[in-house]
Design a protein around this nucleic acid. Structure first.
Length: 341
DNA sequence: AATTCGGGGGC
DNA sequence: GCCCCAGAATT
């Protein structure tokens, strides 16, 4: 990111901004779509964010002109709950090694899981390979460009399908990720953070904000996400650098605290099955040969929990059991060599 | 609607 | 230590 933190001051000379005295009706996220946001206000929001994006967009590799739809899809799956900075090196190595869906479809799951490394949620890696196989077998090796077919692929949910449509094909879709949710919660609803769970009304409101033209819609999607990632951040929002601070309901209300704070429970980590599973996966990733059960047992003090987790990993297709070398020995474990299906 | 599922970095 | 991160699938 060569861009430094100098952000041009908001263009206060532009006087076309509509008066804001018509106080925004206290619309909840699920409130009426039309009328929740004046048309002029919506227009100012979109143009402010898109113009800002034109100057401040990061040049991420999956945005490069030579990107492929498959590369975009891979990036989106990797970015599901994993920050950009950690995805960057993994994505580069991954796309160089498996440039097409057919390449990934033919790989060994063990290699796939090792390349996934510590991006987290390794089942995403397996689903991505299943996705590659489905594209290879059912779509002639070509990434579908419509939301319905994308949505039907393994590991592709509402967000990712919409994102691929917009970022790989420049199509029109409703891209509503954690960043966009937060930007709209603040600018439109005046809330510090969006509600813990995404509502139908919230989706409809986001849909109403998407520009009619495909190119504009795709640009709005990228721009609103980028604003959330770089300026309108969850922790320490940089309102002084925000292109739409002048119309942001949250800032105008004095940045009130999060109403849902009490209901947000942070995911426990220490001692959970997720930690144990992660430890086992790390052990097997680093092992060139099957690891004897006796060795796996040492990976976690609570043996019952450990064995339960290993069984879960086997059931999930993330780990393969190898027959014990002797009758009185435990089976060994390794990353799966061949796809299950 | 609520749970499960990794891992790391910023604060 | 707590919180969050370009979510999806399952129950």
């Amino acid at each position: 990111m060569g861009e430094d933190s100098e952000v041009p001051a908001p263009d206060v000379t532009r006087t076309t901004r509509p008066r804001t005295d018509s106080r925004r009706p206290t619309a909840t996220a699920g409130g009426p779509v039309t009328g929740a946001l004046a048309a002029a206000q919506a227009s100012a929001l979109r143009s402010g964010v898109v113009d800002w994006f034109a100057e401040h967009a990061r040049d991420l590799p999956w945005r490069a002109p030579d990107r492929t739809p498959w590369g975009v899809l891979v990036s989106e799956v990797m970015l599901q709950q994993t920050p950009v900075v950690r995805v960057l090196p993994a994505w580069t190595a991954w796309t160089a090694r498996w440039p097409t869906p057919a390449d990934l479809a033919a790989a060994s799951p063990a290699d796939v899981l090792r390349a996934w490394d510590r991006l987290g949620y390794p089942r995403r890696a397996l689903r991505l390979q299943e996705c590659a196989r489905a594209i290879t077998e059912h779509h002639g090796g070509v990434v579908p460009d419509d939301e319905a077919r994308l949505r039907a692929l393994p590991g592709i949910g509402a967000y990712t399908a919409a994102a691929v449509v917009a970022f790989a094909f420049g199509g029109r879709s409703v891209v509503l990720d954690t960043n966009v949710r937060r930007v709209l919660a603040r600018t439109v609803d005046g809330a510090a953070l969006p509600a813990p769970s995404q509502s139908v009304g919230e989706t409809a409101r986001a849909a109403a904000l998407v520009p009619p033209g495909p190119a504009d819609a795709a640009r709005w999607a990228a721009a609103s996400m980028e604003l959330g990632a770089l300026v309108c951040t969850a922790r320490a929002p940089r309102c002084e650098a925000c292109p739409v601070a002048e119309l942001c309901a949250w800032r105008l209300a004095g940045r009130p605290p999060d109403e849902h704070a009490a209901r947000r429970r942070t995911q426990a980590w220490a001692g959970t099955d997720r930690q144990v599973r992660g430890r086992v996966m790390a052990l097997l990733r680093d092992a060139p040969l099957p690891v004897p059960g006796e060795v796996v047992d040492e990976a976690w003090p609570d043996r019952a929990q450990l064995r339960r987790c290993v069984a879960g990993l086997v059931a999930d297709g993330l780990v393969e059991e190898v027959a014990a070398p002797a009758d009185d020995a435990l089976p060994a474990y390794r990353l799966p060599l061949a796809p299950v299906g």
